[in-house]
Structure formats: C-alpha cells, structure tokens
C-alpha cells in the first residue's frame, strides 16, 4: 500500500443539496503523473480542495503516503508534503519573485521571532540558505532572471511557473496542479511536458494535474481520471480513456457521441 502516494477513498462532498463529489475513489502511485479531466462543473477543483484540506469531505477518507489527512488543516497537510497551485495566480503581490520563493520554504525553516529579531547566527545562515535554494529552484524552471522583479511585473504564464517552483522548493511528495498550462505562451507550452517530467524524475514528485489542454494530458500523463458530475466515469491510460464512450458522451453529449463513433 505504501507505494500509493495519494489515495482518495469514497469521498463525497455536498454543497447545499448538490452532490459535488459522489463517492470518488482515486489511487495515485508514487512517481506517477496523473491527469484529471472532465467537463466544467465536474468537481475537479473541488476534489483538489478536499485533498488539500480547504473543504472537509462529507464522507470518505484521504491518505497521503499511507496516513489519513482527513480533517487536517490546509497548513498541516502542506507540512506533511502536499503542495498545490491554483487556477489563478496566487503570487504574493507585495513581494519580489525571490521573496515569494523564500516564502515557499516556510515549512523547511524554523527561526522564530527571537532568533530572527536578534539576527542569531543560525537564523542568518538559514536565511542565506533559503535564498540560495530559492535561486536554484527558480533556475530549475528557467525563471532565474526574474528573481528581483515583482510578481506583478511578470506575465500570467510566468507567474504560474513561479508558483510551481514556489511549491516545489519545500520538497513536497505530491503536488496538485490546477490547470497549470493556462496562460502559457506557445513556446513555454512546448517545453511544459518536459518540465513536468523533470519535476517527476529529478525531484521525485508525484503530480496530479487538472488540465484542459488535452494534448498535454495525452503526452505527459501516465494515467488519466475522468470526472463528470462529481463521479469518476473513467480511469486508465490516456488512449483507453480517450476512446471510452462514456467519456465522449460526457464531453460531447449523446447525439454527438453517436455521430463521433459513426464517423
């Protein structure tokens, strides 16, 4: 069981009377890149929010690396090694790119108000190491030249890449990416599969991504899970999922499915 980086077991979420997630199961092996697709309103982002602790699941359990994280606070789940990015840019606007990156190291550093206030030798050493790690991590995603710029000066796509780096810097085990390719320039999009693979291979991170750029999902994901109306309707390798009649129906509707399979 321990080779499962993340396991979602029978998770249900209701908002008012609406079942946003209906006994969803998801098993992601360590080192896997998993795609999460589905039409709008399928519950993909809600699933990420439940896993990262922003919403509590009504029913079911979530295991990170074999231990239940159900009911834990988001910051606690993050400290256990789960990172995530959001659909929109969540860079801290008052900070430079470098300061944003160093904020990502929060859980890996431990100077307190006294050691920081009195500039203890250890706190200063930690600060230097944090800066070094931040620059290295920016370099990893090819954004080193933007270190001293403000987040708001970057393009939307650049901000998203910095956010990914900010998540990676604390060496999480699992990272959830919510539509990471939105806003990327064509050039960057072309390199993006490579970046995702490098994150998996060089950092040993398990990735789960929601993505609408289907080409990217097909290229890079080992397995794809399809959500529709809060339920998992397909789960398997990309090609198998692509031809699943239920998936086609969920995206295109019944009528078009008939035409699609006829042609």
């Amino acid at each position: 069981m321990t080779d499962l980086a993340l396991a979602v077991r029978g998770v249900s979420v209701q908002f008012g009377g609406v079942h946003v997630l209906d006994s969803v199961d998801l098993s992601v092996r360590s080192g896997e890149i998993r795609g999460l697709i589905g039409p709008n309103g399928a519950g993909k982002t809600t699933l990420l929010n439940v896993v990262s602790g922003i919403h509590a699941p009504g029913r079911g359990d979530i295991l990170l690396d074999g231990t239940s994280i159900r009911g834990h606070k988001p910051s606690e789940i993050a400290r256990r090694g789960l990172g995530r990015t959001f659909q929109t840019s969540r860079l801290f606007r008052g900070m430079t790119v470098l300061e944003n990156m160093m904020t990502g190291l929060h859980r890996r550093t431990d100077s307190n108000i006294f050691s920081a206030g009195f500039r203890s030798r250890r706190a200063m050493a930690e600060e230097r190491e944090a800066e070094h790690a931040a620059r290295k991590s920016l370099d990893f995603v090819g954004m080193a030249q933007f270190a001293d710029r403000r987040g708001t000066e970057l393009s939307f796509g650049q901000q998203r890449v910095v956010e990914i780096a900010r998540t990676l810097i604390s060496e999480p085990k699992v990272v959830l990416l919510d539509e990471p390719a939105v806003g990327l320039s064509m050039n960057r999009l072309a390199e993006f599969d490579l970046l995702l693979r490098r994150i998996r291979d060089e950092k040993g991170v398990t990735l789960i991504l929601i993505e609408h750029v289907i080409r990217l999902v097909m290229e890079v994901c080992d397995k794809v899970t399809v959500l529709s109306s809060g339920r998992v309707i397909a789960d398997g390798d990309p090609n198998q999922v692509r031809n699943d009649p239920q998936v086609i129906e969920a995206y295109l509707g019944k009528e078009l499915r008939a035409r699609y399979s006829a042609s």
């Binding site: 990262s52 602790g53 922003i54 606070k73 988001p74 910051s75 993050a78 400290r79 990172g83 995530r84 959001f86 969540r90 801290f92 606007r93 008052g94 900070m95 904020t103 990502g104 929060h106 859980r107 900010r166 998540t167 604390s170």
Partner: peptide, 12 residues
C-alpha cells in the same frame, strides 16, 4: 495579507 489560501497551501 496577500492571499491566505495560498499561504496555507505553503504550510503557513
């Protein structure tokens, strides 16, 4: 101040 949801997701 700048984004409490993102802050929590970084373990703060």
């Amino acid at each position: 101040r700048d984004g409490d949801v993102a802050a929590q997701s970084l373990g703060i």
